[in-house]
Amino acid sequence: MFRKRREEEDGSRVSLFFATDLHGSEVCYRKLLSAARAYGASILIMGGDCTGKTLVPIVQRGDSWTCRWSGEEKTYVDSRAVEELEKEVKNSGSYPVLVGEDEVERWEREPERIAERFSQTMADTVGDWMRLGAERLESTGVRLIVTPGNDDEFVVDEVLAEAPYIEADEGKVTALSERHQMLSVGWSNPTPWDTPRECSEEELAEKIQRLAGEIDDMSNAVFNIHVPPYDSGLDSAPELTDDFSVRNAGVTSVPVGSTAVREAIEEYQPLLSLHGHIHESRGAVSIGRTLAINPGSIYAEATLQGAICELGAGEVRKYQLTAG
C-alpha cells in the first residue's frame, strides 16, 4: 500500500477509470462520479458521446401532463409523478422537456425549433453535469477529464471549455502523471449516420499524428481516441443492409473501426489505448505491446460500463472491465 502511494507520488504509477458513450444518461454520469471512490482511481476519464439522442416532450394540458414514454402514452396529474418521469427519462439517456401544447404545435410547423431546443438542452445538461462533477470532486483531488465524441456537437466543446475544475482535453496532450501522457481525439471515421464529428481516415491520421508528436515518451503514453482500431475485435457492429436494417437478426457483425487508428497504434505502440464508439464491442485486446480497451456502453440500462487501469513505469500493471 505504501509502495503504491509512493509510486503515485513520484509519478511512476497512476490509477484511472475510463467510461465512455454515456449518451445523456444522468444515472451513469452520477455513477461515474462515484467510481473514483469505489474503484480507488485518482483520475476519471469520460470518453466521447456524452450527449443524448432523444428529446422526450412532456406536454402540459391544463392541470395534467401527457408523455409518450416506453411505447405508451401516459397522463399524469401529480407533479411529483412528473418529476419521477423526468428522472426516469434522464436516467435512460433521453432529455425530458416540459412544454405547452402551443410549443408542440409550433414544433410541427417549424421543425428547426426542435433542433434549437435539442441543442440547447444538450448544452444545458452537459453544463449541469460539469458543475456537479466539480462540486463533488474538487475537494477529493480526483481529476475528471472529459472529451467529446463523434455524436457530440461542437456546442459541447464550448460548454466544457467554460466548466470549472473539469479538464476538457479534446485535441490536446494531457499529463496524467509526471511519467504518463495522454492524447485525446474525439473524431471518428465516416459513419452511415453523418454525425457531427466525422472526417476521412487521412484527416484522422493527421490529427493523431500531430498530437503524437507532442508525446515525450511513447512507452508511457495513453491514446484516448473515440473510434476503435479497425478489425481489432473492439469494433464489431451488427451488419446492416443499405437501408440500416440489421442483417441476420444481428448474428453477423462486421468491423467498423478506423484504419488510421489501427495504423497509429501499430506505429507508435503506446502503453494503453482507450476507445468507445461501438457500444456492443466491449473488450480488451493487445495490439503489439499496446493494450487497447473498449469498455462498451449500456447506458440505457442505467449501468455504467468502464475500465479500471493501473499504469506503472512502461507497463499496464492491471486492468479490469467493470459494469456497475
Binding site: K53, T54, L55, P57, A115, F118
Partner: peptide, 11 residues
C-alpha cells in the same frame, strides 16, 4: 411523440 437527432447507431 419523441424526437431523435441524427446520431450513431440508429438502425
Amino acid at each position: 411523440g419523441t424526437y431523435a437527432r441524427k446520431s450513431s447507431g440508429l438502425v
